[in-house]
Computed example of a mutant assay.
Amino acid sequence: MANPTTVARGGGSSPSPGHRRRKESGRARASGLPAWSIPYVLLVPGLLVIAGLLLYPMFQLAVMAFQKVGLAQIRGTRPAEWVGLENFEKILSNDIFWSALRNTVAFAFVAVSLTLIVGTAVGVLLHRLGRKMSLFVVIGCMFAWAVPPVAQGVIWRSLFDAEAGIVNWALDLLPNWLAAPPDGARSWVGTPWLTDTLPLYIALVFCVVWAGFPFIAVSVLAGLKGIPAELYEAARVDGSGPWRTFTKITLPMLKPVFAVLTVLSIIWDFKVFSQLYTLMNGHTNREGYNLSMYAVAEAFKPPQKLGMGAAISVVLTIILLVITVVYVRQIVKQEEM
């Protein structure tokens, strides 16, 4: 039988849900805010930081794209001149813009595809390794991902150096039927990789994939850890092979992970600048520009035309937004089906 004293004091029973709601609403009234608005109020500091660091600079960039801004405007000796769509008309009528757009799209397609393939393969390998060996390989891979972009360019520029690069030295070790020197040359040594557009972008693909696949691998590994082991055991009992198991279980379960990784990789590879600038050793090859390099060259190469550079950046941003929206809509449609 319950103690009457305890019952009278309420020590033996928990407060009712209605009592808790009354207490919470009392706290909200004490703060002077309705309960539903508190989460939104807590978001205000973060939104202000985002607005100051991201939205305001983007607004300024968009405004500058419609102005003529040069050295005089930077120094403040002359106000910026509003030119409307003139900057966009100039870049769209320039052959360099279209070659830069072609280089950007082709490079992003190859780099994103290879980064996802290599990263997924390494992630699956890490999942099959033991805990200690997996940790060792993850740490080694993350060293490459942690290297700053400029340092990545320096490393791969030295590897593809015409006279002292390891790439030419390694190609000389291969038999001629596998890797014959260029026409008229006895050796690969002296072959320039970073002067022509196609070899330059081959080196850039190696550089970007080498630095980008560890992030993909670790993300895939995290996704694989969340797949129930019972699914793989059932597949083995049914006699499913490794490739069928991967395509029927692993890929469908990792679709959300691949959706995010693909969007991030597209954004990163469309905006590659530091590695390309370092490999090219500056604005030396106009045919090798991508859109980021073209924007910087127009904005800061004498005579400075910051309005033109801003217009190219706006076009690049619009292209990325369109690609991202179309890709995400396709993913959403597939999930609904």
Rank of each mutant, 00 (worst) to 15 (best):
F109Y: 09
P252D: 06
N176V: 02
L92A: 04
A310C: 11
P214D: 01
A295Y: 07
T115D: 00
F97K: 06
V63E: 00
L251V: 00
Q304L: 15
S93G: 14
A72R: 11
V208P: 00
A162P: 02
G184N: 15
I117G: 01
M142C: 08
N281K: 11
L47C: 12
R21P: 05
S37A: 14
V272C: 11
L276D: 10
I155M: 10
K271Y: 05
F300G: 15
A179R: 04
P303N: 06
V137Y: 12
F59W: 13
P39Q: 15
P192D: 04
M133T: 12
P45N: 14
S274V: 02
W243G: 04
F258V: 04
E335V: 08
A259E: 02
P4L: 08
Y277N: 06
R131G: 09
E298I: 07
V257T: 13
P181A: 06
P181R: 03
A111S: 05
S37G: 06
V110E: 03
W98L: 06
V7C: 08
A180M: 11
S25F: 08
A211L: 01
E89Q: 12
G32Q: 09
A106C: 05
R78I: 03
A111G: 01
L254P: 02
V154T: 08
L194M: 04
T324P: 07
S14Y: 08
E163T: 09
T115Q: 03
M1D: 14
L276F: 07
T195S: 06
A62Q: 03
F206Y: 03
R78G: 04
G309P: 09
G52R: 15
F109V: 10
A259W: 05
D161Q: 13
C141R: 07
L61E: 10
I227E: 01
F66N: 04
P34Y: 03
Q304K: 08
A106S: 09
S134N: 06
R286M: 12
K132T: 06
V220F: 02
F66E: 01
I96L: 15
S113K: 03
P17F: 04
G226L: 01
F107K: 10
W98A: 12
P242I: 00
K225P: 00
A51T: 14
D183A: 15
F59D: 13
Y289T: 01
R78T: 05
I38N: 14
K23R: 15
G184F: 13
S14Q: 03
T120K: 00
L254I: 07
R22A: 09
W243Y: 03
H283T: 12
K225G: 10
T245D: 09
P181E: 02
L264P: 00
H19P: 09
D172F: 13
G119H: 03
R157A: 15
A299R: 06
E233A: 04
V326M: 13
F273Q: 01
V44E: 14
W169E: 10
S219T: 06
V272A: 09
K225Y: 01
P252K: 07
R78L: 12
D183C: 04
P149Y: 08
